[in-house]
């Protein structure tokens, strides 16, 4: 079992830079991050000292500001958050091209096989674009990079933004079972194959634009009983890794959409039982499985918090619970990391 190194203050792996920028000439435009760090809350410091420090920083910044902004040559400022990512985490990329107002289509952002759908930053306004990436459970820990490409004055430009991936700490479920119980019957196998193809089509049919506005929330108030990423080892062989989060709950408790979107699937599946899949746009889907009852239909628009069905134990479930999954660019991510990553984008 792979484990994250002990977390110590100052451990290099945790101290990767928050924002990566191309080197800026001394008189060039200041990166956004500088301005952010100047916002030291006065309430946290003895007032006099706070005032002193704040003015010190302001002075330093003012002196460093260029006399005129050579905006046309300014590369966009690219920020990734969270700064430290684990396998299975969602990652937000922010591209700040201001003062230029390049359109989202002018950028191409890619990470591994993922091509990110960009949308306007809900809070920061024109010229700032956001995209979501997923770090797969299978991603090798270490340095990875995301590529941003655009065209400046007819010349193609690109930047590789390196970031660090640490291995998530996932538990393991080792089971010895009669192989006959692991292997579905031929008709079941055929059904599973058909359903997998359908799911592939569903996940490829997402809206390129963002359908949510108010961020995401937990679908049920229940207690998390099945962590994301748990490795399931049957007879010594790694069969799967838990693709979502399980919530313990009672049959019949309501399940709510974690964000606004459009229902893309609402039917019974072999493994997932009664399942609902919601497309949130910009590469994001959420799914709700093992429901005792489905209460939405395909094509229906749902709002955040709207009821989509009731808790149950349908499909391959040992007891009543909700399996909640989130996919970003067709990759399973830890739904909690997704909520955290997108929280900052809420107005």
């Amino acid at each position: 079992m792979r484990r994250r190194a002990p977390v110590k203050a100052g451990a290099p792996a945790r101290l990767r830079p928050i924002a990566m920028r191309p080197p800026t000439p001394r008189n060039g435009p200041l990166p956004a991050i500088v301005l952010r760090s100047a916002a030291i809350p006065a309430g946290r410091l003895p007032l006099l000292r706070a005032a002193l420090l704040a003015s010190l920083l302001t002075l330093a910044l003012a002196a460093a500001l260029p006399e005129r902004l050579r905006a046309e040559a300014a590369p966009p400022r690219i920020t990734l958050f969270p700064a430290s990512v684990e396998t299975g985490d969602a990652l937000v990329v922010e591209i700040d091209g201001r003062p230029l107002q390049r359109a989202a289509q002018e950028y191409t952002v890619s990470f591994a096989e993922q091509r990110l759908a960009l949308f306007a930053h809900p809070v920061k306004g024109r010229g700032v674009h956001v995209g979501l990436a997923a770090v797969p459970l299978s991603a090798p820990p270490g340095t990875a990079s995301l590529t941003v490409a655009w065209v400046d004055g007819g010349r193609p430009q690109s930047r590789r933004i390196p970031f660090h991936i640490t291995a998530g700490a996932y538990g393991e479920e080792r089971l010895r079972v009669d192989p006959r119980h692991v292997q579905p019957s031929p008709p079941d196998l055929e059904r599973i194959r058909r359903e997998q193809e359908k799911l592939k089509r569903v996940y490829a049919s997402g809206s390129p634009s963002r359908l949510w506005s108010e961020g995401f929330q937990l679908p049920v108030p229940g207690e998390v009983s099945g962590p994301f990423g748990t490795r399931r080892v049957f007879n010594g062989e790694l069969r799967s890794q838990h693709s979502g989060l399980d919530f313990r709950s009672q049959t019949g408790e309501p399940v709510h959409a974690s964000g606004a979107g459009v229902v893309k699937l609402a039917e019974e599946l072999f493994y997932s039982g009664n399942a609902v899949i919601v497309d949130h746009g910009a590469g994001v889907f959420s799914s709700y499985s093992h429901l005792s009852r489905i209460q939405v239909g395909v094509g229906q628009r749902v709002e955040r918090g709207q009821r989509v069905g009731l808790i149950g134990a349908t499909g391959r479930a040992t007891g009543p619970h909700l399996h909640w999954g989130v996919k970003v660019n067709s990759v399973n991510v830890n739904p909690l990391s997704f909520i955290r990553a997108t929280a900052a984008l809420s107005p």
């Binding site: 977390v7 101290l15 928050i18």
Partner: peptide
């Protein structure tokens, strides 16, 4: 100043995580 500022932000981040 940028390298210092980056270090400052790293410290903020590590405080936050830990």
């Amino acid at each position: 100043l940028e390298p210092v500022i980056e270090e400052m932000n790293r410290l903020v981040k590590s405080y936050n995580d830990n």
